[in-house]
């Protein structure tokens, strides 16, 4: 499997996750939620790039599911961070 430009972009995407991970590790609860939302968007891009890089069309559904679930998860976290957590 030759390394094409999609896999190189996916590797850059993985490096992009490092700042989000740092904020997730050391911020206040709301900062961590913001970093989680940012990481959700970056993850969806990485899944798109891997699906295209490996020519597996089935994994585009994975990116779509992640995009939708990170929306729902972010809303639930935001709701509970208001008062109860």
């Amino acid at each position: 499997m030759a390394v094409n430009e999609w896999l190189v972009a996916a590797a850059v995407g993985l490096l992009t996750l490092v700042p989000c991970g740092i904020v997730c590790a050391k911020g206040s609860p709301i900062d961590r939620l913001v970093a989680l939302e940012m990481a959700g968007v970056v993850d969806a891009v990485i899944l798109l790039l891997l699906a295209q890089g490996f020519h597996r069309d089935i994994f585009f559904d994975l990116a779509l599911a992640l995009a939708l679930l990170s929306l729902a998860g972010g809303l639930v976290f935001a709701r509970f961070l208001e008062r109860w957590v």
């Binding site: 709301i30 939302e37 968007v41 995009a67 939708l68 929306l71 972010g74 809303l75 709701r79 961070l81």
Partner: peptide
């Protein structure tokens, strides 16, 4: 999906903060 859900998440998070 990501472009539409961006502002929704941002507003919910800012309101929670």
């Amino acid at each position: 999906v990501i472009i539409v859900s961006g502002p929704v998440l941002t507003h919910a998070t800012a309101r929670a903060a």
